[in-house]
């Protein structure tokens, strides 16, 4: 391997270009086409299965189905309504209620998950050496559990009459907690999200820490830094790019929270049709088959996700430099 790398490094690149440049001029003239061939397959599926549906969705958001008075028992007409759907969505308390809920969710769930992930990664990087492979796999397994299975699973854990947790409480003569009530349901959902994604984030952090050059630690030890000091002054700053990315995905995931509340809504009266913005969009656009209003809501969710992501990226950019 050493020789191979050497060979590459030793290639006298500029010279080679000059020596070969004269001959294949003709073929080079078509070289511009290569990058496009590389992106063509992606572009095809991107245009067919993202751009086209997305544009279609946006176009629909400017229309609505209307009856011309009476009992409405004949087919409606699809009419241009301009920005009406957007105006309606912006005035819909349901949408803002949903945004507020995912905001509260994100403010609590993301830090808790990230701190736990960081703590585990730090422990595995310095203290807990034995059984590391086992811990790593155990943490990552929930990520591999299909969403529907996770929902069925936690559904059983949260249903008071059949939950093993409630069983344990009852056998200890205690009142079991109500996981599905209006004040607890959001945190029951946060628990599922944390369970699924904590290991994923932890692994990213851990992998980033393992990539920190050894020399930095040696220098730090010479400076008399403790393990905690090394964690604070070297490890955490060094894995900041990885954390930033993990945070960004978590923010997007929170705003678009959907799967867990949708499947738990069967067993919890506290999950209403606008519980999260995405649940709201799904109920309007699919369950109520109002593709027009639903299109406007989806576009707004996309826009607000963009604003938050952009704000986050800008804010953390400054921090990184500072």
């Amino acid at each position: 391997m050493a020789t191979q790398t050497e060979h590459v490094a030793a290639s006298p690149v500029p010279e080679a270009i000059t020596s070969r440049a004269a001959k294949p001029r003709r073929t080079l003239s078509l070289a511009w086409i290569w990058p496009y061939l590389f992106i063509l397959p992606f572009l095809l599926v991107f245009v067919t299965f993202f751009v086209a549906p997305f544009v279609y969705d946006i176009i629909q958001s400017f229309y609505a189905e209307k009856h011309a008075g009476g009992l409405g028992l004949s087919p409606p007409k699809v009419v241009w309504v301009g920005l009406d759907n957007y105006v309606q969505a912006l005035h819909d308390p349901g949408l803002w209620d949903g945004f507020w809920r995912v905001f509260v969710f994100g403010i609590v769930q993301i830090p808790v998950m990230m701190v736990l992930a960081l703590l585990i990664a730090l422990l595995m990087d310095s203290v807990v050496i034995r059984f590391r492979s086992f811990f790593r796999l155990a943490a990552f397994v929930p990520y591999a559990v299909p969403g529907v299975v996770a929902a069925i699973l936690w559904g059983f854990f949260y249903t008071p009459g059949i939950s093993p947790i409630s069983q344990a409480f009852r056998s200890a003569q205690l009142t079991p907690p109500d996981f599905l009530g209006p004040s607890t349901i959001l945190w029951s959902i946060a628990n599922i999200s944390t369970w699924v994604y904590l290991g994923y984030n932890m692994l990213i952090f851990f992998a980033a820490m393992q990539a920190i050059p050894q020399e930095l630690y040696e220098a730090a030890r010479i400076d008399g830094l403790t393990e905690v000091g090394i964690a604070r002054h070297i490890k955490i700053p060094m894995i900041f790019p990885a954390m930033r990315l993990g945070l960004l995905f978590s923010i997007i995931g929170s705003i678009q929270l959907f799967n867990e509340p949708r499947i738990l809504e069967n067993i919890s009266g506290a999950i209403n049709e606008h519980f999260t913005p995405n649940i709201f969009a799904y109920n309007i656009a699919y369950i109520q088959s109002n593709y027009y209003y639903g299109g406007a809501i989806a576009a707004l969710i996309g826009f607000i996700t963009f604003v938050f992501s952009f704000a986050f990226m800008t804010l953390t950019q400054g921090k990184k430099r500072g």
Partner: peptide, 24 residues
């Protein structure tokens, strides 16, 4: 531009695109 669009695609809730995908 392409990279920006790839990133942007992550911001649109895909559940709401299922019906439009079906229509396409």
């Amino acid at each position: 531009l392409l990279f920006a669009m790839v990133l942007g695609a992550a911001l649109v809730p895909l559940t709401t695109l299922a019906v439009p995908i079906y229509l396409v």
